[in-house]
Design a protein around this nucleic acid. Structure first.
Lengths: 152, 152
DNA sequence: CGCCTTAATGGATATCTATCCATTATTCAG
DNA sequence: CTGAATAATGGATAGATATCCATTAAGGCG
């Protein structure tokens, strides 16, 4: 126990922790980290949170520590966004994340390409669900998407 | 001086103040407000900031109090006053039913949490389709959803 | 290796923010 | 009106987070 980790690994763990748990404050987070065998001082955690841009915000009633995603980060820092933020897949579907309001354009573009790999797409506001023609060629589909969209 | 204002007017003034000035902390903001003739206690300011969803974040180097815009707000606060009506699943997908018009907020919030369990979400008007990263951990995904959304 | 420089860390503490409690204002039914 | 119920507010303080300072660890480089 009390693993010695380097800073980078520790920060990754912190982000992961926050994504999987509902955390109200640094104290709770510290406890979670210690429970999972990572020893560190509150001072260090505070610095890590600052570096990771973690914010504490009120979510219905209580407080919550959140790791900003690229999106939030971009918006908060007032930067300009790009097309495709991420492409993810499981065994049967592919999900494309884009900036708010851009999903429809991305979906239309994919449809327009009329690839035999793509059965169809459904677009929300910032997410496109891509249904493959066959679950056997998901990975082909993914590389096809990367090739045809300006993935960042 | 020392105008007496109602709560609403005061909060508008606070937002305006933050949009026009670079403010590091409540103390500075309090001073600005007082300089412009608005008397209030730190306790009140703290409550106002909480109500307005104002966050304090690190922007290259220093701190900054920020009024979330619609986008940020949607992403960060996710679910203010949201009610999840039901969570259903089959072997490969999970469906969340919510109130009309609220689905997008629920989906965004789930996406924002960036759980490794969630591949992505597609929101309609009152329904969110949640695609799991792997069809093997659907039940984990369901409990995760219950834990992170105020299921009613 | 041993010295220097820089980064990382923790303990203690300062700073900043939220909340408790008591008080005052506001609303509303009668 | 008038009293009861509720909301808003400030002072004091608790709680949470950032920073100061001293120490230790981690690289360069002769």
């Amino acid at each position: 126990m009390h693993l010695q980790m380097n800073k980078h690994a520790r920060q990754l763990k912190i982000q992961e922790m926050l994504q999987q748990n509902s955390v109200e404050n640094q104290h709770d987070l510290l406890q979670l980290l210690r429970d999972s065998g990572i020893a560190l001082a509150q001072a260090t955690l505070s610095r890590d949170c600052a570096e990771l841009g973690i914010i504490r915000t009120r979510i219905n009633g209580g407080y919550r520590m959140v790791v900003p995603d690229e999106n939030t980060d971009r918006i908060i820092k007032g930067l300009v966004g790009i097309e495709v933020l991420a492409v993810n897949a499981n065994e049967t579907t592919v999900i494309i994340r884009t900036l708010p309001g851009r999903a429809h354009g991305v979906g239309s573009w994919l449809d327009h390409l009329k690839s035999p790999l793509v059965l169809g797409t459904i677009a929300g506001d910032d997410t496109v669900l891509v249904i493959p023609s066959s679950v056997l060629n998901i990975s082909d589909l993914i590389s096809y998407i990367h090739k045809n969209l300006s993935t960042n």
